[in-house]
Nucleic acid binder design. Structure first.
Lengths: 127, 127
DNA sequence: AATGATTCTGCGAATGATTCGCAAATTAAG
DNA sequence: CTTAATTTGCGAATCATTCGCAGAATCATT
């Protein structure tokens, strides 16, 4: 099994993600690291992001330009509310799904197994 | 403004999408067309898909492997229920969102502007 | 059904994000 | 401090998607 060493580059990438709390691409993270004189190779950024996503510590989203972006978030099932002004991402618990599941079953004969949701709008700080 | 000619290649791509009713990548559509001796270039498939998505006649989704895939669907606001067995996509109307919107407002101070949802499970035919 | 203006198509080349291979550097453990 | 295992960084390779451009198709008019 892979990934057991705890290394400086990985901590640096994680630190950026924890600090920013918004969706970042590998290139953006790499850029932010360079700005603060932390030289981590782009390959390592990619590898670390895959690791975090694999462990469920980060979640991925493909942005409009086709780049994959990541945020850190907790590992319980939840959804994200993304602020269109500052980009901040808040975790949102998932309650409404039960009614949706039964509607799918009765109206469409569809047995719901999984779902994805994303919310976009303006966060409290930006209003 | 672009895109006003009605052409054979475009109709061929649209026909495949209408027939299949599931998410298809440009490469898959290109492959299906070749199988039935309809030679449309991959570039044209890409261009046609962009057009359809631009007009709202198709909607796009990036699959697990990073490929962009498309389904035809109507233009009113709705969501998709994707069958994990056969891949068929059904349109699902969106009702539950109002309660989610007010929960976001009260609990998170978040003003909801837009949202995305995708449902995965087993469709009636596959059960 | 021929003309001309505009819009498509197909091809191959270019792009851009992501992945891979491998030698050198780091890490964990004895 | 040695050793064995994992990671890093670099450049090269990959893969989906986009571009540029010459020739072909479409549409509106005669």
């Amino acid at each position: 099994m892979r990934a057991q060493y705890s290394t400086k580059p990985r901590e640096q990438v994680s630190a950026i993600l924890k600090r920013e709390q918004r969706y970042l691409s590998a290139a953006e993270i790499h850029g932010l690291l360079r700005k603060s004189r932390q030289n981590v190779s782009l390959s390592t950024v990619y590898r670390t992001l895959d690791l975090l996503a694999g462990k469920g510590e980060a979640s991925a989203r493909v942005d409009a330009g086709g780049e994959t972006t990541y945020v850190v978030c907790d590992q319980t099932h939840h959804h994200h509310a993304v602020c269109r002004k500052c980009g901040k991402v808040q975790d949102v618990s998932c309650e409404a799904i039960e009614s949706v599941a039964s509607a799918l079953r009765t109206h469409h004969g569809f047995k719901l197994a999984d779902h994805e949701m994303q919310f976009f709008g303006t966060c409290g700080a930006c209003k």
